[in-house]
Design a protein around this nucleic acid. Structure first.
Lengths: 92, 92
DNA sequence: AATCCGCGATACCCAAACGGTATTGGCCTG
DNA sequence: CAGGCCAATACCGTTTGGGTATCGCGGATT
């Protein structure tokens, strides 16, 4: 499981559509489909239901989505924790 | 920044020694050195001081370490959130 | 002061992972 | 029953990651 995969998953969950999610992520659809498949494989459970209209989150996917967002939030915080500070601010 | 890099960083921080951390991670020393370098590059700041005895966390590294552990904890939680349940347990 | 030893860093190579283009298969829709 | 839209697959080139061998540089030992 990679950070990119988690970002991809969140995008697909939010768009409910691989093609739109791919455009939003600036990658093409096939790699995105594959990363979602790999993620499902690794987790051992499908996260989406494939419909002719797009992708619908399964209950397992919804549960995972909450965790995925928390992971991304922590990654963001980690990235920012070394950013050059505007001026006056102290570390905790 | 990848999850593996974060795990690598935590191992090096805890061991204060690239060689030992590499053994613990079951990889060899040179790739580990490189991943740490890449992480520092991406973050735009050195995280360790290189000493003849090993690696010592810099203040920036210590700050990042706390975040790194939180990221890994969330990743773990995400992984476990779909695990087959022993018997009786309900989702939140 | 000269030598040795242990550390991280570098050079080079190979295998695995990732993304892109082209195409397929399936299912609703008109 | 034909067209269109969706995800899925096939195939390819490039990039990334890890391994082995080796270097350079300090500190420690005598």
């Amino acid at each position: 499981m990679s950070i990119a995969q988690i970002e991809y998953f969140v995008a697909v969950a939010e768009e409910a559509h691989v093609g739109r999610a791919a455009r939003r992520l600036h990658i093409s659809q096939p790699p995105l489909t594959r990363q979602i498949q790999r993620l499902e494989d690794e987790l051992g459970a499908p996260l989406f239901e494939r419909t002719p209209r797009g992708m619908r989150l399964l209950p397992a996917g919804a549960r995972f989505l909450a965790h995925a967002r928390r992971v991304l939030a922590e990654v963001d915080a980690a990235r920012r924790c070394l950013e050059p500070l505007p001026s006056s601010q102290r570390a905790r």
